[in-house]
């Protein structure tokens, strides 16, 4: 579903992503681990067509992201580290607004259903988003993915700053989406969450994917040891 072939990005003379080759199958959750500046966010940005690759190409559902961004964006939902919504709109209104940007329109009942499915308390549906916590906002993001019927989720450190309970709820939602066939590419620093949630883990360093393994292959402790070794 997601594919990067020889994907390279230079910022001036700085090589941010070095010929990345990656493939994520439909329904798979792929977690990208790595230190700051390793190239995780650059990879996500290239799949979002927010930046132009210096070389290589990114594909979503077999479509070249750079050549047909409107088509690929119809397939994805993106949730950044700190999901910002319109503070003066309610959760339902925000959901409807971003759905309308994607060309969809749903009735309030359906929107409420998706928010509920994403785990947001019903009392918050019609509250203005400026009173929402970060966890609540992330749930609106998940509701957006559900309502858009996205095939791909691109997540850039989505659990950063969430409390363990909210983080756990978020992971459960990702697994649920994965069971529905949604492919997830998640950049994270959270080794534990990556091991718990992901199907596969990639470790990045200096723009290169230096490890690509199945989460079943390693335990929590081994993963941490491996990660620290690789970061040396």
């Amino acid at each position: 579903m997601l594919k990067a072939t020889n994907l390279t990005k230079y910022y001036g003379k700085h090589l941010a992503l070095d010929a990345l080759n990656l493939e994520v199958q439909a329904g798979e959750i792929f977690c990208l681990l790595g230190a700051n500046g390793a190239g995780k966010s650059t990879t996500i940005n290239l799949f979002l067509d927010f930046i132009k690759p210096s070389d290589g190409a990114a594909f979503i559902g077999g479509i070249n992201v750079e050549k047909e961004p409107i088509k690929t964006k119809k397939l994805i939902t993106y949730i950044p580290e700190n999901l910002v919504l319109y503070g003066n709109l309610t959760g339902v209104e925000n959901l409807q607004y971003f759905l309308s940007l994607a060309g969809k329109k749903l009735k309030s009942k359906s929107l409420e259903m998706f928010l509920e499915e994403a785990g947001l308390q019903s009392g918050a549906f019609y509250q203005r988003v400026k009173s929402y916590s970060k966890g609540m906002r992330q749930k609106v993001g998940i509701a957006l993915a559900l309502a858009k019927e996205s095939k791909v989720l691109l997540l850039d450190e989505p659990t950063s700053g969430l409390d363990p309970k909210a983080s756990n709820e978020f992971s459960e939602l990702l697994i649920k989406l994965s069971e529905l066939g949604v492919t997830t590419l998640m950049a994270t620093h959270d080794l534990f969450r990556a091991k718990e949630t992901g199907d596969r883990i990639g470790i990045m360093k200096s723009g290169q994917l230096i490890e690509n393994m199945s989460t079943g292959e390693v335990g929590h402790t081994d993963l941490e040891k491996l990660y620290l070794d690789r970061m040396k």
Partner: peptide
């Protein structure tokens, strides 16, 4: 917000 907006097909 622009990142979220721009991730949509528009």
């Amino acid at each position: 917000l622009l990142r979220l907006v721009a991730s949509n097909p528009l």
